[in-house]
Design a protein around this nucleic acid. Structure first.
Lengths: 143, 143
DNA sequence: TCACTTGTAATCATTTTAGTTACAGGTTAA
DNA sequence: TTAACCTGTAACTAAAATGATTACAAGTGA
């Protein structure tokens, strides 16, 4: 399975808020760039808001960034949009046979290893900011 | 979303083959330890076989390891059981708006970053072998 | 008041997972 | 050769998740 594209959309939205920071960023406008439904945007927006990454008000059109894009890492977005259950990127089969030495120990043996792998990935996400993405786009616009 | 438990089950099976290497490892026996259906085991077994990790023969009961457990990394298992589409741990929304500078560049900007994060995780998996797990279980058997 | 927006719930088609049943075909022993 | 047992596979199911869509209550401001 793949990690939900909510993550990529979240990144897209934040970058777009920077690009269009002088304009009015309604959910419909954002949806137009992402190419999806405004309700999808609003749902993701709610998550980004709860994480303190954006400012939105009921009834008033236009979202804004709540932080400098240099201070928003991909890990922040990843956590905000809740694409992976905390500490459970990898799922482990439940209730292996406790009568079997392998069965009764396999979970404890595997869990920390999976945790390490997940952490390695999250660390990589934590080292990149929305600003990095924005700079990349400014430099390499593929018209 | 989480990565399929096929991965954890694959690790379980390989460790169990080492534990019971003098016994007869039928799909029913393995299923008993994993606590699932024999057909599920046979399906995963087919993937491990295709990856050259186990030896199984149609009609004859009992699977064997095809390699030394010190030479089987978690990454080998992960690849074998096909839990993540190659180079696509993270999915990206398709067809963002090409009229928008952010929309037309976001995929190219994000892809290599996602790739780096995925690689970091896979590297972590590549540094652990089934032997490590087997040794852990032998040392820390929780009776 | 009116037009417009956000927040949110409900619904839907699609996809994936894990389990289950069924059975064709290989293998071995009696 | 027959009988018992196994693997390989396909088909089907229930449950869960995704992303899209519709609908509407409630907030905002001209």
């Amino acid at each position: 399975m793949s990690i939900s594209s909510r993550f990529a959309v979240g990144i897209h939205i934040l970058t777009l808020l920077e690009f269009n920071k002088k304009g009015v960023n309604s959910s419909e406008f954002l949806a137009g760039s992402v190419n999806t439904n405004p309700a999808v945007i609003r749902k993701i927006m709610g998550m980004l808001k709860k994480a303190g990454l954006v400012k939105v008000q009921p009834g008033v059109a236009g979202a804004e960034l709540a932080k400098n894009i240099a201070d928003i890492t991909l890990l922040d977005v990843y956590r905000a949009v809740n694409v992976v259950p905390e500490q459970e990127l990898f799922s482990i089969h439940e209730s292996p046979n406790p009568q079997c030495p392998v069965g009764r120990n396999i979970q404890d043996a595997i869990l920390p290893l999976f945790g390490t792998a997940q952490l390695a990935m999250e660390k990589a996400l934590g080292s990149v900011t929305i600003e990095d993405i924005w700079e990349d786009i400014k430099l390499n616009d593929r018209d």
